[in-house]
């Protein structure tokens, strides 16, 4: 039961994150949305680990690796957002309106 609760929470996070990634224009918001989706996917994967019998250690190893990858992607994205803001004075992509 509790594993399913984690899986459902993961699914909700994924949905929220995708909405944010597509609907938000502010680039930092999009970076945050990407991380929300990532957390949802990892939660989902973690829920699988306890679904049948004794906990399966492989998903934990995958999640740790995934978190490292997501962290690197976030670092690069934030770096690009800052560089783009300094070079263009904008926090959204060129053809998109800046929301606040």
């Amino acid at each position: 039961m509790s594993a399913d609760a984690y899986a459902v929470t993961g699914a909700i996070l994924i949905a929220l994150g995708f909405y944010g990634l597509v609907a938000a224009h502010h680039l930092l918001r999009r970076v945050v949305a990407f991380n929300v989706i990532g957390s949802g996917v990892f939660l989902h994967l973690g829920a699988y680990a306890t679904r049948y019998g004794p906990p399966d250690p492989v998903p934990q190893a995958l999640i740790i690796t995934g978190i490292v990858v997501a962290l690197s992607a976030t670092a690069l994205a934030v770096g690009l957002v800052v560089a783009h803001a300094l070079a263009s004075g904008r926090v959204a992509l060129p053809e998109e309106a800046e929301d606040d």
Binding site: F18, R30, A77, H84, A87, S88, P94
Partner: peptide, 21 residues
């Protein structure tokens, strides 16, 4: 490091990250 290259990189990254996820 120019503004339009950075914007292109960001747009690419958004697509690519959605793809990865």
């Amino acid at each position: 490091g120019k503004a339009d290259a950075l914007a292109a990189a960001l747009r690419y990254m958004i697509f690519a990250l959605i793809g990865s996820l």
